[in-house]
Design a protein around this nucleic acid. Sequence first.
DNA 1: ATGCCTAGTGATACTAGA
Length: 256
Amino acid sequence: MKIATYNVNGVNGRLPVLLRWLKETNPDVVCLQELKAPQENFPEAAIKEAGYNAIWHGQKSWNGVAILSKTEIQELRRGLPGDPEDLHSRYIEAFVNGIVVACLYLPNGNPAPGPKFDYKLGWFERLTIHAAGLLSRNIPVVMTGDYNVMPTELDVYKPERWVDDALFRPETRAAFKKLVDQGWTDAIRKLYPDDTIYTFWDYFRNAYGRDAGLRIDHFLLSPQIEGQLKAAGVDKNVRGWEKTSDHAPVWIELDV
DNA sequence: ATGCCTAGTGATACTAGA
């Protein structure tokens, strides 16, 4: 079974790219982030036509997450618990193919320091609490999406330029490490511990052409599923298509 | 240090992204 995550940066603006990528790579389950569409503007018919069921949590202008699957989707929750005043659509969770799939869009956090960075770290803490609850159930969980964190220097083209950025500050990296250290496996790093692998390239300065990228989209696997990890990768070529997202799709293959 | 690019909103220059 192939599960993918893709920050589409506007699900309607990227619909031709999304549909082409679905057709070419044929994933079983897909987590989408940054829909940038209100609930009623999700392109449900086109997604259905492509062969996928979908659940989504939209929001006007910003954010928005979705889970697509060729099989039945049983929604478990939308919205991250722990703060009733947080109205951003950044988390959706479902039971699919016998696995709990959590799809998340962690806040960017810039400029840092500041209220946006505080929101990021608070969101991270709430995610970590919720993730501990998922682990305590001893079931297969795939927690994936745009974490907006480069976990190590290997994940940034020029680490020295990013040390004060919300995506790479020590507090952010420490929060990611604390989460992973609960017992999660970073799927890409398990299979490729030393390789330079990016999932995002800025629209500025020909970043894709120069391969000046970041690895910020991640798959975290619970102990009950990490043994089934067979392959993982980034569909880097998609970043080179016309009218494409600044992120590339990331995927894992599970032997289930 | 800043803009570079791109999308959304809504009709203009903003915000937001990372």
